[in-house]
């Protein structure tokens, strides 16, 4: 009775579609290219070295983890998810951060946050943000040294000098270290406010541009453009970015109106630090975010509120990473409470 099976009997759908995880990840990479170029323009070639390092460590740890867990290395390395984790991490750290920052960050991102939680699609926390938060808390000094934007800097570091700074911690000697490097705009604000300077005085220095930090605001603009590409390509939806940006403005505005000299303005919030990157590229990570439409709004709003609170009242200059990680924890609960009505359900 067992008839000879001639044809393949896999289940529907039978015709192929071109979508794949790798394609999703590569689109993310493509969308980040404009912002990366802007980064090079404003802060020099350090970011190129950081990107190379972070991606190399990410792929190395990914391969080792897959090997140790007996998973198909070939299949999983090709999904480019580790590649994107390295990419996002490098965009968060200083262009002259020492090389071991990437090493430690990627270890926690890939090995701890991703593979120890079950690998691709199983992680609770955003891997890039876990790595970033760990190095930020553990090595605050190494993380806080940024180069001054090239437009106001008296000295532009060459590629070789960047390499020396990253690998040997040696900076050019012909110029004063304090002139060469500078705290980030948000860091500057935090320090200055604690010294009782008013916001108007703080942002009046050349380090600040029209709404955000000089250079930073432009990079944020390019993140925005890249983000629009992702929405157009349907890699992400508009909900999370909109929720993050709108909530940031809405939540920071009352503080700013209450005391303009004590609190950061809404536009300064949006165009500074990692907010725009997070709005389009990090809080939109589907694995660690919410899946219902209502849930996505709540998630984005939560990230924004946490970020503003940390920036205004916390110990750290920026709070995007903490906002994302805290909302990651809340995501499963939000999803359970916002199950959408199905077709034909009473509404």
């Amino acid at each position: 009775m067992n008839q000879n099976k001639v044809f393949n009997t896999e289940s529907a759908p039978h015709i192929p579609d071109s979508n794949s995880v790798a394609r999703v990840m590569l689109t993310v990479w493509l969308a980040l290219v404009p912002a990366m170029l802007a980064h090079v323009f404003f802060f020099g070639t350090g970011i190129v070295i950081q990107l190379t390092l972070a991606i190399a460590f990410a792929l190395l740890f990914e391969a080792i983890s897959l090997k140790l867990l007996n998973k198909n290395i070939n299949l999983f390395l090709k999904d480019y998810s580790a590649f994107v984790t390295g990419l996002l991490f490098a965009l968060c750290i200083s262009p002259v951060a020492p090389w071991w920052i990437s090493f430690i960050g990627m270890f926690f991102s890939i090995v701890v946050a991703k593979h120890l939680f079950g690998g691709l699609g199983q992680n609770i926390f955003n891997p890039a943000m876990v790595g970033f938060a760990i190095v930020l808390i553990s090595f605050p000094q190494a993380m806080s040294i940024w180069v001054a934007p090239q437009a106001i800097s008296l000295y532009d570091m060459s590629f070789l000098e960047n390499l020396q700074a990253i690998f040997f911690n040696t900076f050019p000697t012909e110029i004063d270290f304090d002139t060469l490097t500078q705290a980030t705009p948000l860091d500057t604000i935090k320090t200055a406010i604690s010294q009782d300077y008013a916001m108007s005085e703080i942002t009046n220095v050349p380090l600040f541009g029209k709404f955000g930090g000089l250079g930073w605001e432009w990079i944020a603009n390019f993140y925005f453009i890249g983000g629009l590409l992702l929405i157009y390509k349907k890699v992400i939806t508009w909900r999370v970015p909109t929720a993050v940006i709108v909530t940031t403005i809405a939540f920071s505005l009352p503080f700013n109106l209450y005391d303009t000299d004590q609190f950061i303005g809404p536009l300064q919030h949006v165009f500074s630090g990692g907010l725009m990157l997070a709005a389009f590229f990090i809080a939109t990570d589907p694995t660690t975010g919410c899946s219902s439409h209502k849930g996505q709004f709540i998630f984005g709003a939560g990230v924004a509120i946490m970020t503003v609170l940390v920036r205004e009242f916390g110990n750290f200059p920026d709070g995007v990473a903490f906002g994302v990680l805290i909302m990651n924890m809340a995501a499963p609960l939000i999803d359970r409470l916002t199950i959408p009505k199905a077709f034909g359900q009473q509404r």
Binding site: H14, L120, K234, P286, S291, I339, P340
Partner: peptide
């Protein structure tokens, strides 16, 4: 022909949510 031999874990990208005509959360 579509082949499912190489299926990867779900990354919860939500594409299925966008196309589901019954308005379900297929990935959940």
């Amino acid at each position: 022909t579509q082949h499912h031999g190489d299926s990867l874990p779900c990354i919860r990208c939500g594409k299925c949510v966008e196309v589901c005509p019954s308005q379900l959360l297929p990935q959940q």
